Simulated assay, not measured.
Amino acid sequence: MADWHVYIVCCADGTLYTGVARDVERRVAEHNGGPRGARYTRGRRPVELVYREAATDRAAACRREASIKGLSRSQKEALIRAAIAVPMLS
């Protein structure tokens, strides 16, 4: 099982935020209320998890995060739709 994940949350204003974490559920909870949530999401609560992808290690997760952040909005939406069409195993 992968220790690291790349995730995308949809913020209340409709923007998408991409990050990496070991425990995605805890991290999303932090985005939604804790002081440890990302500065970007603090003013855009609540956030909803819309995408998660496993990575082999932190370096791989960070590389994938950077590649996702380089995608256009429509490409990110296509990635999310494709993940919804295929059930997640984790």
Rank of each mutant, 00 (worst) to 15 (best):
A29C: 10
Y40C: 07
R22G: 08
L89A: 15
R26G: 09
V20H: 00
A54Q: 05
E65R: 08
T56R: 09
C62E: 13
G34H: 13
E30I: 08
A85Y: 10
R44I: 04
A66E: 12
I80D: 02
Q75H: 10
L16Q: 00
A85M: 10
E77T: 09
W4T: 00
A29Q: 13
R45E: 09
V47T: 11
Y40G: 05
R26D: 11
R39D: 12
R58P: 02
A29W: 07
A21I: 03
T15V: 04
G34M: 08
A21L: 04
G70C: 07
A61P: 01
E30Y: 13
R73C: 03
D23G: 08
L71I: 08
A82W: 11
E30P: 05
L79R: 11
Y51I: 03
A66N: 13
D13R: 03
L49M: 12
R73A: 08
G43A: 07
G37D: 06
V9E: 03
R64A: 10
V86Q: 14
G14D: 03
W4Q: 00
R64P: 01
M88N: 12
R22Y: 04
A2R: 13
A78M: 11
H31I: 05
K69R: 15
D13P: 01
D23W: 13
T41R: 04
K76I: 07
I84C: 03
E30A: 15
V47E: 00
D3M: 11
D13T: 03
R58M: 09
G14V: 02
A85T: 10
A60L: 07
L71Q: 14
V47K: 01
R36A: 15
R39I: 14
C62N: 09
R73G: 01
K69Y: 06
E30M: 14
L71H: 09
R52M: 13
P46F: 15
T41H: 04
A54N: 02
I8Y: 00
T18S: 06
A2D: 09
L71C: 12
E25M: 11
A82P: 09
E25W: 11
R27I: 04
A66L: 10
R36Y: 15
E65F: 07
V20A: 07
